[in-house]
């Protein structure tokens, strides 16, 4: 079972995760009427920028983060922003039934917008496959929140100088996630391992992201 301290930490991280999300005025625009490829490009970049801003706010709330070396803070955020963004998107696209009809329609519109944004098909397909594979895990909001925090606090990112300090922040969260998985998915003893596997998969998107942006800009 989770100790009281772990329960409090989980609650705190979940609250921040729920609080710091892309503002409605940005998502609203994204879900309004269809527009051309150029407008799609601008809207999606605006959304990505907004995502990074709220991600930083969420990260600042992670216990111990603000005490890290300032350049290490930037290295951690730079290294994880793309992965955190894919995780958020996965949460949107993997929503399972019962699905409100309006929500279903919105995620279809969003998928359509991404598919017609000028991003090459070879990058789009693995992305939606990933969303599907995340959906199969039927993750609770707590798992998304912890997984995002764990991704941000990865000690092995490039340019991180004080890796042990980052490790000390990440480890307690891994413990909580492992326990939470056992409690929440008693029928799947491999659930925690599967989540960590998705993190590895996320890293490949990080690598492809620069190529993807390049192809997008050229298109």
């Amino acid at each position: 079972e989770l100790t009281q301290e772990q329960q409090d930490l989980l609650r705190y991280i979940l609250d921040s995760f729920i609080k710091y999300r892309i503002p409605q005025e940005v998502t609203k625009k994204l879900l309004q009427e269809r527009c051309n490829a150029e407008e799609n490009f601008l809207l999606l970049t605006e959304t990505a920028t907004s995502h990074v801003q709220v991600l930083v706010e969420f990260t600042k709330k992670l216990p111990g983060f603000q005490a890290l070396d300032h350049e290490d803070q930037i290295a951690l955020l730079k290294g994880s922003a793309v992965e955190a963004m894919f995780l958020r998107s996965a949460q949107i696209f993997s929503k399972k039934i019962p699905h409100e009809q309006s929500e279903q329609k919105q995620s279809e519109l969003l998928e359509d917008r991404i598919r017609h944004s000028g991003i090459a098909e070879e990058y789009i397909t693995p992305m939606f496959n990933f969303y599907r594979s995340i959906g199969e895990l039927k993750m609770a909001q707590e798992e998304y929140a912890l997984l995002t925090a764990i991704t941000i606090l990865s000690p092995d990112r490039s340019y991180v100088k004080h890796r042990e300090a980052v490790e000390r922040l990440q480890e307690p969260l891994l413990d909580i996630l492992q326990k939470y998985c056992k409690l929440n998915h008693p029928d799947d003893p491999q659930h925690f391992a599967r989540l960590l596997g998705r993190l590895t998969e996320l890293r490949t998107f990080n690598h492809h992201h620069a190529d993807m942006l390049m192809s997008w800009r050229i298109n």
Binding site: L42, T45, E46, T49, V52, Q53, V56, E57, K60, H70, Q73, I74, L77, K78, A81
Partner: peptide
Amino acid sequence: PASNLGLEDIIRKALMGKYDD
């Protein structure tokens, strides 16, 4: 516009609490 800023610029500004420039 923000969309012309690099990722690191956006992160640095957000860490300092500056959103709008």
